[in-house]
Design a protein around this nucleic acid. Structure first.
Lengths: 186, 186
DNA sequence: CACGATACGGAGTGATCGTTCCGGTTGTCA
DNA sequence: TGACAACCGGAACGATCACTCCGTATCGTG
């Protein structure tokens, strides 16, 4: 469509900006000043805006790239022999990786800005739901949850992880809750 | 100590500021501009600063007030006949109330600023731990958790609730996880 | 190599917001 | 009621930050 072939230096700078943004957003989330990203990329602020229409757009580009990696990992697991193990492996892996990346945490947890909840990472969402449904069909996960519920629980697990980092046993509480088949609330 | 007896109008304005701050912070969290609080209180910005040294201090005052209410509710339950029911009742109530109040969510979830994690709401923390230990002794809650873990889980539950409001069954997943006695992770 | 199109850097702009300052007002007490 | 201290409102200040503008530098091509 609109790909007028970038000049060599422009292509190089675009890559530098993306790399710098990935690092900066991962460390500090959307709060990092755009000028910091530009400096980290060895580039002026104007150059960032030549390649991305807004800070928000740059953020989304970075997040989307990462979510597509998640989606790819899920794709490799949908045909696993043990759907339950595949699901729990993936669940734990996503939480561990995402908890190391503030950009992902903020993007997944965002409630405002329909871009995240409704469009961003469509494939990630679809693959996650597929893993969930296979695990449910195999009896490994309670059946009163859907893909939306699961994403909400991931957001919760990320909050737990941020609050008390490295507490493996807290995630296990959640996993045990997912396994429970017959809820018995008082 | 330092209570030189406020003038009548000063006392009235202080109360108005607190009430306005409670409402504004509950709705929008710490992000609400201080000028908005002042206007809502029918007061100038300078007046707010006469009573509270900073916006942050005002926020803490509001949060602390609310946490003391939580602590009082817990105090009434420590001698309940059924420690398990008391614990789960309280847990669910705290999550429901806190999820309606962004100020509380942000204060409980704050990881920076030692004031929250280390000092704010000491009594709330102590009473929560007491309820937990009684429930654990009664065999109603798994024993591989302490008070810190429980607060982390509350933070997680609040994140879930904010992401997908009113999903009662998601909190139930967590409750089922708390009940599990023998973790059986793959 | 020369020239036009493309891209760059970074100072500048406008908006937001926490905090301070001060001229005017109001409560209190003798 | 008069006078002083306490208090008030809100304009002004300074810092931060996303975003724009434009003179300059660089790339690609004939």
């Amino acid at each position: 469509m609109d790909k007028p072939v970038l000049r060599a230096d422009a292509r190089r700078n675009r890559a530098r900006v993306l790399a710098a943004a990935e690092e900066a957003f991962a460390a500090d989330g959307l709060a990092v000043p755009l000028d910091d990203i530009a400096r980290l990329a060895g580039v002026g602020a104007g150059t960032v805006y030549r390649h991305f229409p807004s800070k928000e757009a740059l953020f989304q580009a970075v997040v989307l790239e990462r979510l597509e990696q998640f989606a790819a990992e899920a794709r490799e697991l949908v045909d696993a022999e043990d759907p339950g193990a595949a699901f729990y492996d993936y669940f734990a892996r996503v939480i561990k990786q995402a908890s190391l990346n503030r950009a992902i945490c903020e993007a997944l947890g965002a409630t405002t800005g329909s871009a995240y909840k409704a469009e961003l990472g469509t494939e990630f969402r679809a693959n996650l739901a597929a893993l969930l449904e296979r695990a449910q069909a195999a009896g490994a996960v309670r059946t009163d949850l859907d893909g939306d519920d699961l994403r909400a629980l991931i957001v919760g697990a990320l909050a737990v992880e941020r609050y008390s980092p490295g507490s493996h046993h807290l995630v296990r509480v959640l996993l045990d809750g997912l396994r429970a088949v017959t809820p018995a609330s008082p």
